[in-house]
Design a protein around this nucleic acid. Structure first.
Lengths: 175, 175
DNA sequence: AAGTTTATTCATTTTTTATTGAATAAATCG
DNA sequence: CGATTTATTCAATAAAAAATGAATAAACTT
């Protein structure tokens, strides 16, 4: 579906920002609608309802709901209850630490954790009496090293995302 | 397609390892065949030809070729010329630094780089005379901050992957 | 409680992505 | 050189993922 239909309800800044997020989502292979929804909320100062969102983006009720759920699970969107208004409304969370933490927690961590169990299983598949055993043990060691790397690098990334001024090569300070 | 057909030509360690890589590829949303090929080469001590690979995995010539090209572009596989053998053969590269560097270079860096140009374009979409201008400038600042974060965090990951004993910053408890 | 609005599910359809394999090109050999 | 093997392309097909929207459930109102 073209964006032109939705475009009439969005200002140029929103159109451009949403396009940027959609490209980013493509890189991360996340659903387009998720990026659209986040982009819309990110560029809208007041919280929006599900209907508001679907209406302005021209996407279906189901996609809107699924997208909001995905974003909320991640911590990228939070629901707000407006006084005297029944429909739940939503607004974007955009602190880097929250986004990074949620993404790592939901999308990455589970797999890294499962990986440890799979490595044990891998070890058992080696036939010690085979002439390949030495070679296979070597490869297994390699995989275990990768696993270790990932389990250590994730907290570092998390820490970097949390600290606004993380220690790195000197750079011109912001004005 | 089921793996059973291919399984008969693979030992248990290979079957398990390939399954592990296929799962990892699913997380990274990379094509299954790429993971299969890498897994096969990783668990085979001697280099294999395109025909060897397609034959043992039960995948087509085209997929095999595409997968090898993808892996070779990344630096995860290297071609070797065996003396007196016409067909080119391939073997897996598995140093973490090479893999990480290649992945970042091919899959991530280009987009981060393009991002900088897109942010400039975004700035021009703000109508300074609109009442939203201040809000939009604020959001733009936010996006620019993310961009900065990514452009700085990538080299760090690269560095961590390169050093076998990387220095884990003693980060103070978050507040 | 019934009536109404809002939230959620999920079987179907659409769209996107990956795979196939026959056709073509390039390389190598006698 | 022509014959043969190997490498590469790409249009067609299959498989996977995302989007749709009508149906159902839950929440709220009077």
């Amino acid at each position: 579906m073209s964006d032109s239909e939705a475009g009439v309800k969005l200002n140029p800044f929103q159109v451009e920002t949403i396009a940027l997020f959609v490209r980013a989502a493509t890189v991360l292979r996340l659903p387009r609608s998720v990026a659209q929804i986040y982009g819309l909320l990110f560029t809208t100062s007041d919280p929006l309802s599900l209907d508001d969102i679907g209406d302005r983006l021209g996407i279906s009720r189901g996609s809107t709901f699924d997208g909001i759920r995905w974003l909320r699970d991640l911590g990228a969107v939070e629901g707000v209850t407006l006084p005297g208004v029944r429909k739940e409304h939503f607004r974007a969370e955009f602190r880097l630490r929250t986004l990074a933490t949620g993404f790592l927690r939901n999308q990455i961590q589970p797999h890294v954790h499962n990986g440890a169990a799979h490595i044990r299983q891998l070890r058992e598949s080696i036939d010690a009496s085979s002439p390949d055993a030495a070679f296979q043990k070597d490869r297994l060691k390699q995989i275990a090293g990768w696993q270790k790397f990932f389990s250590r690098v994730l907290p570092v990334i998390k820490a970097l995302a949390t600290k606004p001024h993380f220690p790195l090569p000197k750079h011109p300070s912001r004005s």
